[in-house]
């Protein structure tokens, strides 16, 4: 599997990571090598094998419906790069 420059640019955009144009070719090479490496999984017979998403050997635990958290807006906002009037602020979004 080989990725070209355009594909890398598309993925980078999907991941919201700015990649300078001059790095795209190099990155395409690296990513292609990694994909070549993982390609060998094709040799494994996985017919009738269930995919494994987690090794945790238990059922999903549920918590009771009680308010036990929140109520600390200062702590939530404390690390904010930009806050105003109790909100986080970002560049204006036009819908």
């Amino acid at each position: 599997m080989s990725l070209d420059k355009a594909a890398v640019a598309r993925i980078a955009h999907l991941a919201r990571i700015k990649v300078p144009d001059e790095e795209l070719d190099h990155l395409a090479g690296e990513l292609s090598r990694i994909l070549d490496f993982v390609e060998q999984l094709g040799e494994v017979d996985t017919a009738d094998v269930a995919p494994m998403a987690s090794v945790a050997a238990q059922k999903l635990r549920r918590r009771p419906d009680e308010v036990t958290d929140g109520g600390y807006p200062e702590a939530v906002l404390k690390n904010g790069p930009e806050t105003a009037e109790g909100y986080f602020a970002v560049p204006k979004v036009v819908e």
Partner: peptide
């Protein structure tokens, strides 16, 4: 419900901004 789906913060409508927010 009283609390959120995956956190223990409250769900009431119309509270002060970011006051019903857990770190989750």
């Amino acid at each position: 419900s009283k609390a959120k789906l995956f956190s223990g913060a409250a769900t009431d409508f119309g509270s002060d901004p970011n006051s019903q927010v857990s770190f989750v």
